[in-house]
């Protein structure tokens, strides 16, 4: 069944054509060039470059810390959005503006600042190392940097959905005798999950590509705290363009698969919810 409605912009054909050429120029062309570059070496060399033990370790570090940072922000970013939407308190506008700061700050500045804080002689690192832990120059430092740079994504994804979530649904649930936990689990979270997942996907994607802040705090030890983007830069410095492209293609493929999976889950959640609503 097709529905005809008047749109503000004229011409489906025209707009779709524009969108497709724009996407091709901005996204597809560079990606195609990347894949083409990696194809300039034979499949054996590609495989060797993409699956060397160091590359495998770097993927583990990159994807592992990106997922971990995303999970941390999934909890605390959602909580932050909740506080910002549901409560009115002095300084709320200030905190709201603060959330976007990691977007604006050059990531190298973030990296240097975090390293200064968490190094063994820094104001935070001193206490952490006295307690027997280490953050700067270990994989933990990578997670800290990624939590910082990816925080805005989850907050900004969840916030608008929460704002449009009417409080009267919760009130109705309460009058029907639901406790706080039941309301959270059965009313609020189901409505938020798609937004939380979308935010997680964005944060995860951002973290995978992050370079500037991480290299300062990571320690960059091969097999331990070396991220895949650093391996790419190292290969470029050796003028091994094809090898660098091979690793980039692997990251690209995995990222794409993960994002696709998250999007499918999100779609399924939305469908299930609207199906329930109809029922």
């Amino acid at each position: 069944m097709r529905i005809f409605r008047r749109q503000a912009l004229p011409g489906f054909g025209l707009t779709l054509g524009l969108v497709l050429s724009y996407l091709t120029l901005i996204v597809l062309l560079p990606l195609a060039a990347l894949v083409l570059k990696s194809a300039s070496i034979g499949p054996h060399e590609f495989w060797a470059a993409a699956t060397s033990p160091r590359a495998l370790a770097a993927y583990r570090v990159t994807f592992g810390s990106a997922a971990l940072a995303g999970l941390v922000n999934l909890v605390f970013g959602t909580l932050l959005a909740w506080v910002l939407v549901r409560y009115r308190f002095p300084g709320r506008g200030f905190i709201d503006a603060l959330v976007d700061l990691p977007f604006a700050l050059p990531t190298a500045v973030a990296g240097i600042t975090l390293t200064a804080l968490y190094a063994g002689n820094g104001p935070l690192g001193r206490w952490i190392e006295a307690a027997g832990y280490k953050v700067a120059y270990t994989p933990n430092g990578i997670v800290v940097a990624l939590v910082f740079v990816s925080l805005p994504f989850i907050v900004r994804s969840v916030q608008p959905v929460l704002e449009s979530l009417e409080a009267d649904v919760e009130e109705a649930a309460a009058t029907l005798g639901a406790g706080r936990l039941t309301i959270l689990a059965k009313v609020i979270l189901p409505a938020l999950w798609p937004a939380i997942l979308a935010g997680f996907a964005l944060a995860f994607a951002r973290s995978i590509g992050e370079y500037g802040s991480v290299i300062f705090i990571a320690g960059n030890m091969p097999m331990v705290s070396e991220i895949a983007p650093l391996l790419i830069v190292a290969k470029l410095d050796q003028r091994d363009y094809a090898g660098a492209a091979a690793i980039a293609v692997v990251i690209l493929a995995v990222s794409f698969a993960v994002l696709l999976a998250i999007n499918l889950v999100q779609l399924w959640l939305v469908r299930r919810r609207s199906a329930k609503a109809v029922r």
Binding site: T115, A116, A119, G120, N121, G122, A136, Y137, I215, F216, G219, N220, M221, P222, L230, V233
Partner: peptide, 21 residues
């Protein structure tokens, strides 16, 4: 015995001098 591998000489100097590594 190397705990941190910086990407450049200036970065290594900072790690040693400022960060006390």
């Amino acid at each position: 015995n190397v705990p941190v591998l910086d990407t450049g000489a200036r970065g290594a100097t900072t790690t040693f001098v400022e960060r006390g590594q």
